[in-house]
Amino acid sequence: MPDLAYLVFLVADGALAGSIYALVALAFVVVYKASRMINFAVGEWTMLGARTAAAASHTIGLGPGGAVAVGCAGVVALALLFNRIVLRPLSRSSLLSLIMLTLGVGIFMRGAATVVFAGVPARIASPFPLDPLVVAGVPLSVDKIVAAVIATACIAALSWFFRGSRTGLALRAVASDQQVALAVGIDLHRHFAITWALVGVLSVLAGTLWSFVSGGGFGIELLGFKVFPIVILGGLDSLAGTIVGAFAVGILESLVAGYVDPIVGGGFSHVASYLVLIATLFVRPFGLFGRPDVERV
């Protein structure tokens, strides 16, 4: 491949991955915005979403659309249950105990998924052709493009939901100041529930798309760890920043994997985003798009 085409290929491939990262990162950020909770189990939620959709597709024999719908129903129900039973009594806990709580939830979900989905394949058959689409000499895989289109549509829908709808306005009010939101008559618990329903939907979508693209759900929990550089780069409370951060990290990883990994050995691309993260925090300790007051000790 000529140099320029290779560069374009790497950037495009990174952007395609970035669109799925954006979904996972948004699932993290909506929770953080609403309740200042750090969800260390966001990767496990994505895994659960993927496994539920896969189970719906294998045991009931649904197509991808039906599997995602059943998956959403299941995981949204679980997320609402989690919000009602576990989170509601905990609204005023320290940063650390909430982190530990999500770690516990993550361990539990991994264990439960192994038991519940024992013998059910994690793979979801991709309905798209395997041959790559060649655009101006740059090969792009069809399932990745479809995944990116779906992910981008979801991001657009979510952005509209937060910007344009009345519920979105209320969610932004809750994010901005819970006391004031309560004072103007916004039902906090109802909006926390809506937030967690969003987490459920985003997890299923991100998990299913990732399973298409990666050809099986192996190591999908690790997707959660990609989220931290993204949200720190984007600033924890900024949806637009998160989306920019997700694409930036996707492209960065792809470029590093294409140019640097062959020289220094594999795996460097996985930490490149953390290097950028640390450099960013030196310059702007509250992220590129974040407000300085996000820290909480």
Partner: peptide, 14 residues
């Protein structure tokens, strides 16, 4: 095992 372990941590933090 993981389920018990996760539940234990969860319960403790609750």
């Amino acid at each position: 095992r993981e389920i018990f372990y996760g539940l234990l941590v969860l319960t403790m933090m609750l």
